[in-house]
Structures are given as structure tokens and as C-alpha cells.
Amino acid sequence: MTAIIEASHLSKIYESGAVKTQALADVSFSIKKGEFVAIMGPSGSGKSTLMHIIGALDKPTSGSYSVDGVTVGHLSEDNLAQLRNKKIGFVFQAFNLLPRTSALKNVMLPMTYAGIPKEERVARATKFLQMVGLGDRLDHTASQLSGGQMQRVAIARALVMDPAIILADEPTGNISTVQAEEIMKIFEELHKKGHTIIMITHEPDIAAYAERIITLKDGRIISDKPDGHKLWK
């Protein structure tokens, strides 16, 4: 299998005044197409910084990073925006849906930025909302949905552009355990269908759904175990 994510010697230093904080130090790894990877670590370990770099929301201070063959280092802000639009499907801890907008329109949003015609936007959004089990909630606004439902809308939104990777940042952090299980089942199914999933979490039982666990501490990878399932189940 080809590597869809290639990260070598990534480091990130935040400067605020005279204080320099090293958030990432010489992090290298690659992720193959179709892998389901969990990135773990305590708070302050640099996993959020790594997620921002993987998601093309931020650039590393040094080192190189490429996603689906595109090297991110020299891209302009607008090119980064297009890269995020086409290659990365975000699922956030806080869902980040537009609250007073319908589920359908929320899912259509990335396609609007890609300039996809309206009929196709509606058709695709409907298809993915049905896939996550919300076919009967298309016109509900985000604020009328439960946490689990909102996260399912967010997953549908992450899938509509058929991205190279799905990047989930603590996807179960804000919802109940029962709903969390449902969400993780959706991720498992997506994994079975061949989607590449990268999930940031600090909960071991959530990370256990992944087939590979990268653990960070103080900005460095301290373990990269390929068999999460065996480890936790």
C-alpha cells in the first residue's frame, strides 16, 4: 500500500516574546492508505499541534509533510484552504456545525467551497446523511439535534468531498458513552470500506478501535504500536 501521509523530522516551535516552546521535536512517521490510526498522549504532549499540521491548518517550523502526494511546506494560505477542502475531512470534538443551519446545508458547505453544482450538492449530502443514519433529519437545524447526531452530521460533512484522510480530533469527547460507541462503529465501518482515518484521543478505550496507536509525550513519539486491537481488546 502507498503512503498517504509522509511526515519526516517535523518540529514546531511556538515563540511568544522571549519564551520558546517546543511543541513537536523531530517527529517522523508515515501512514498508509486505508489505515486507522489513533494518536494518543497526555495534554501538552503535542498531539493537537500534530493534528493541526496533519490537517494543513498549520505549517511545521522545520521538517517536511505531505498528504496524498502534495507537499504542504510551500503552499500559500489559499492553497492550504483548497487542500483542506479536497483532501481532509475534519471531525471536531465540539462538532463545529453552523448552529441555525439545517443538517443538509451543513453537509453541503465544503462542496459549496469546491464549486460543485447545487443538484449534486443536495444529492451527495443526502446520500451521506442517510449513510450515518440521519436520512429523516435533513432539515433539522444543528441546534435541534443531540450530541451524537451532531457528530454524525459532522462525519457526513467530512465524507462528502471524498477526502484522502478523515481527521478526527477527540470525536467522542463531548458526547455520552452510548453515543460514543455508535460514532466509533461508524468509524469502524468507514475503515472497513477503505477510508484512511486519523483520530486524536486521550481515551484508551476509544483508541482501541484503531489498528495502530501512535503515542506522543513532550513532543516526541514514544511508541508506535501497529496492533491496537490486540493490545486493548
Binding site: 490537517g55 489559499d78 483548497q82 483542506r84 477542502n85 463545529n96 458547505l109 467551497y113
Partner: peptide, 16 residues
Amino acid sequence: TREIGLRKALGATNSL
């Protein structure tokens, strides 16, 4: 602010 951040994360360019 959050809405703007989300829109940018989902691919909205600055000019948009």
C-alpha cells in the same frame, strides 16, 4: 469567530 474558523478549515479562502 468559530464559524469563520470552521469555514476556513473546510476550505473557504480569505477572499471568500
